[in-house]
Structures are given as structure tokens and as C-alpha cells.
Design a protein around this nucleic acid. Structure first.
Lengths: 216, 216
DNA sequence: TACTGTGAAGTGATTCACAGCG
DNA sequence: CGCTGTGAATCACTTCACAGTA
């Protein structure tokens, strides 16, 4: 019944992952502000989380705190980044150079210390050869497989219309990406080599609307 | 201990809401294809859900099926839409006319039978006065409060940079929208009159990346 | 017969309350 | 003393298995 000695090897639930990811971002903000140590209570109040849950999440991964003091911001931040695998930059490609695709390719969220968007792909010849606002090159869709290999891309983002999504996903998986972030409201996969995560913006809006009705 | 006789008045969990919303979309597809009735089993297989869960979700809202037969697609679809409050079109405004804002304003996901994007807002004078690709007008941010009232907007979408998010959210809430869909990686609210739902695209990408590390 | 609706069992996540330590 | 780490309790959600019915 003793937990595995190696921390970070247990399965991490989706919810826990999101909380830890948010925690990591919160720590980055505290670091910028020059805060050296922080208690779970202070973290919770500042960033709208639950103190007990922060402690439990962290305790699941090892022992990071000092009793009576709290957590060392810089230390926790780097160890957490390492455990989550966010301490190195992964190469990302975006399929679909429409407004959404370009927004994602240029966004700070997709271009930080953990990710770098290296290419956009599109079938529209007027777009191919151009670059996004921040300079990400727009390549022809036929070159997807070769470019993914050359760039060493691990993650593919699907920002194409729903009808084109299954095909594009298959090509991404075939090209060897390990993860696919699908923004199209369509079912893609599953694939053997690649994990798919759906981000269905229509469902997001609808669930908000449902909450409004229910609350009324 | 008997459940309330009025169906659809219990709280609906976030997860259940998403499933029902997805179910509604699936029913729309079946209706397009001319399918008249469908069993929970067939629905589950076709759209990657769990049959028992579909039955339970639906049974929580009332009795919709016919034993030995299944569910009437058209009937279930319209009743479900009504219960979820998705049977009428809500007016949506989008704050921030960057790539993301315009992508959302023009997307079919935000312009169907349940939603209509009526305006974009931006502080950039070069954008103001123009229109998005599909014709949504871009209005000056100062007119937000007045326009929200005039248009009868119930939902505001935040597609502005993180630093501008809290201020924009406050103005939306002050203008009387009931729900705010926040795409900025920043904490906004909470507000008295308005529900906030965060859609943090950076967290989406990170959670996918974490799954890749964990699976490796 | 074939399916729904549902009590009951099972599973997992969240919260509580406090022992234990710096 | 103040805070973490954690067993225990609670809560919520999911799955199972089948009684009940058109």
C-alpha cells in the first residue's frame, strides 16, 4: 500500500493536470513579482483555488514544501515544470491558416518556453508561401508529412473546417505527431500513435448558455 | 427523497451539460440523415459515447424513450433543445477584433440556430468601422455598453490580450450581459450579474503535452 | 423481444481535520 | 507557532445489471 517511491509516475487525472498547469502559471507570476515563498493558503486566495487541493495535488507528486513556511516559489516552479514535462519547448504545427489557425500560431499561449509554432499548413494557394503576422511560414498541405519530420513537430493543432478535420488528423497522425489538438467540431481518431484532445468551441459556448438558462 | 416532478429543474453538472450538448448535435446529424428512431446503444457506438450514460442523462430530465424501440430523433431533439435553452437564438458580442475574435465571430459554431454574433468591439481605430469577413460590424469599444443594450446581447466573448481582460470583462458585466466566455489567460470576475466561463487555450495545449509525457 | 429507466454497486475526486515537523 | 502532508469522511459521478414495459 506504500506509494511508489518515484514521484510523478502515477496517473494524473485531467482535472489535476489542469490545476497543476494553472498552478505553474501562477508561480511564474509570483516569480516575476519577486515573491520567494508562498503558502498554499495564499496561493489559493490569490488565484481562486482551494488550499487543501493544492497541497494534495503537490503531495501526490512528492514533498515540495517546508512545514511552517510554505513553498519556495522558484524551486517548486522548476520541479513542477520538470514533472509536467513543460521544461522544454515542443515544436507545434498548425493545420489550417484561417483566422483561428493564425490566431493560435501567433498567440503567446502557443509560443512560450514550452511550445513553439514552427509552421502553418493550408490548401489555399494564395496563402501558401506567405507568413503569419509574427512570421510563421504558411506551407502547402502536401508537404505536411515531410515538414513535420524535418521540424521534429510533436503536436499538431487542427484549425480546419469540420469536413476536412478527419482527413487532416489522419495525415498528422501518419506524419508522426504524438498529440493532436482538435478545434474542429468533428470526431477524429482515435489513432494508435497519437493522443487526441478535442477543444470544441461550440460546446463551450453552449454550456455557458445552458448555465444561464438553469440559473434563471 | 422522490425527485422533483418537474423535469429539468435539478442542477445539471458541467460534464452532463457537455454530454447533452454533444448529444443534441448528434441528433441533428441523425435528423439530417433521415433517421427516425435510434437506441442509446446505436447512439453510443456512432458518436463515441456510453449507452448507459446516455440513458441516465436523459432519464434525469424526464422520460423520452419508448421501451423496446428507442428514442424518436426529431422529438428528442426538440425537447432536449428546449430543456437546454438552445431552442432560441441568443445574441452574442465579441470583444477584441483580432484574429481570434474575428475567427469566433465568423465561425459557424457561434452563428447557428442558438447563437448570432451581432457585433465585434475593438479599441484599434483602423479596425473600427469595418466588418469581419462575414459582415459582423466592428464597433468602438466605448460604445460597448450602449450597443449591448440596443442589441439585447446576453453573452459576451472576451478575445482580448490578458492585460485587457479584467477591464473588458467588467465593462461587459456592467453592460448587462448574463454570461462571459473568457479566452484570455487571466482571472476575471466573479461578478454578481454575470457567469464567467474560462476557455484557456494555453491550458488545453499544456494538458495535451502533459498526457504525452505521462504516456511516454 | 428489444429496449428504456433505475436501484445498487463501484470508482474516483474533493474536502475536512489534524498529526507531525521545521 | 504555522504550515505541510495525509488518513478519513464526504461527495459526486460512472458503470453495472436487471426489472419493467411497449
Amino acid at each position: 500500500m506504500t506509494r511508489a517511491a518515484r514521484p510523478g509516475r502515477e496517473r494524473l487525472s485531467e482535472a489535476a493536470t489542469l490545476r497543476l498547469s494553472l498552478l505553474l502559471r501562477s508561480l511564474a507570476r509570483l516569480a516575476e513579482e519577486g515573491t520567494a515563498t508562498v503558502s498554499s493558503e495564499a496561493l489559493a486566495r490569490r488565484f481562486g483555488m482551494n488550499a487543501a487541493q493544492i497541497r494534495k495535488d503537490l503531495a501526490n507528486l512528492g514533498e515540495f514544501g517546508v512545514r511552517g513556511v510554505g513553498y519556495d516559489v522558484a524551486d517548486l516552479r522548476s520541479r513542477l515544470a520538470s514533472i509536467l514535462g513543460l521544461d522544454r519547448a515542443r515544436v507545434v504545427v498548425v493545420v489550417g491558416a484561417g483566422h483561428l489557425g493564425q490566431a493560435l500560431a501567433d498567440s503567446g499561449s502557443f509560443n512560450g518556453s514550452s511550445f513553439r509554432v514552427a509552421a502553418l499548413f493550408d490548401v489555399d494557394e494564395r496563402k501558401v508561401g506567405g507568413r503569419s503576422r509574427t512570421g510563421v511560414p504558411i506551407l502547402p498541405a502536401e508537404e505536411l508529412a515531410r515538414s513535420v519530420a524535418e521540424l521534429g513537430a510533436e503536436i499538431g493543432v487542427l484549425a480546419v473546417p469540420a469536413v476536412a478535420a478527419p482527413g487532416a488528423a489522419e495525415r498528422l497522425a501518419g506524419a508522426g505527431v504524438k498529440g493532436i489538438l482538435n478545434f474542429a467540431p468533428a470526431t477524429v481518431g482515435p489513432f494508435d500513435g497519437a493522443t487526441v484532445k478535442n477543444v470544441d468551441l461550440a460546446l463551450c459556448l453552449e454550456s455557458l448558455a445552458v448555465r444561464l438558462s438553469a440559473a434563471g
